[in-house]
Design a protein around this nucleic acid. Sequence first.
DNA 1: CCCAGAATGTCAACTAGTTGACATGCTGCG
DNA 2: CGCAGCATGTCAACTAGTTGACATTCTGGG
Lengths: 158, 158
Amino acid sequence: MADPRLTFTLHHLVAVLDRHADAILRRELGMTYSQFLFLVTLEGAEGVDGTTLARHLDVSRAAVSKRLPWFVERALVEVRDDPRHGRRTRLFLTDAGRTLARTAADTLEDALQAPARSDLDVDLDALHRDLDALLTWLRAGLDAGAHDAPGADAPDDA
Amino acid sequence: MADPRLTFTLHHLVAVLDRHADAILRRELGMTYSQFLFLVTLEGAEGVDGTTLARHLDVSRAAVSKRLPWFVERALVEVRDDPRHGRRTRLFLTDAGRTLARTAADTLEDALQAPARSDLDVDLDALHRDLDALLTWLRAGLDAGAHDAPGADAPDDA
DNA sequence: CCCAGAATGTCAACTAGTTGACATGCTGCG
DNA sequence: CGCAGCATGTCAACTAGTTGACATTCTGGG
């Protein structure tokens, strides 16, 4: 990374994508990109507790704890007590939450990915495979070389 | 993006890269990844004013304004008045700042990119080309389709 | 020349995350 | 059983950004 351009391109790309997705969702659905991420992530892991959702979102437990009331007030997410564990809660999408997550996903699909697949001369699937390989390699390297570097752990989903 | 996995992989990859780079720099040089970004970005644009540096960093003017004293106190960055413009300042790396930026870049190179090039079965240059193409396409699409979506502007460097 | 308007750096108030501490509940070893 | 230890959710304090407002400085068209 003495030549850090690949990393820079990645950062830039993510920033532009996020901004664009955020603008679309705000305009079309009055929601934020990170609200979308929250809902979609939960959709893919329904019934998990807060700790697990935090791990899926790559965010702290406290962050999830602070954001939850917003979704509950709007009846997008339901928090149920775990009957087997007084401390733990289980999180579910309501029907409205699921519908919103899917509508948002479709909106982004139509606005971004579909156009990209049709007019861009890049094989997105191959690209995705390479990025995945890179990610996997990185994680392996981290676990191996990092005696003192903590970072995220618990290979539970990815 | 009804199938948002490419975006997710990108986010994940960037997060892992940043965490790893941050850990390395903290351990080896007692500095933060975002401090490194600040220095490297300035190295590539020496003499710019705060507004321009903010644009290069993809961050607000206020953010640069708040961070500058930290670098100046440590004699890594020098702020000179622009003789032609009483309000504007021009920003330069000191020798120490330049040295630190380069050491940090080399450290990351050794720890990440070099190993990746040697044991990873991914063509990083091709990957970079594809990401660049995607980024370029995205930006073009934004400028074209976004009547109301503001976003960043001023095609000045990238 | 002059003044409307834009650009610059900074400030205050806010936002969404972090870490570390805590009370509480569960688990398993003796 | 009992209790040491871990996991869970939440809180307070902090961090690094944001936006919007501001004073100040420059610029350009009458």
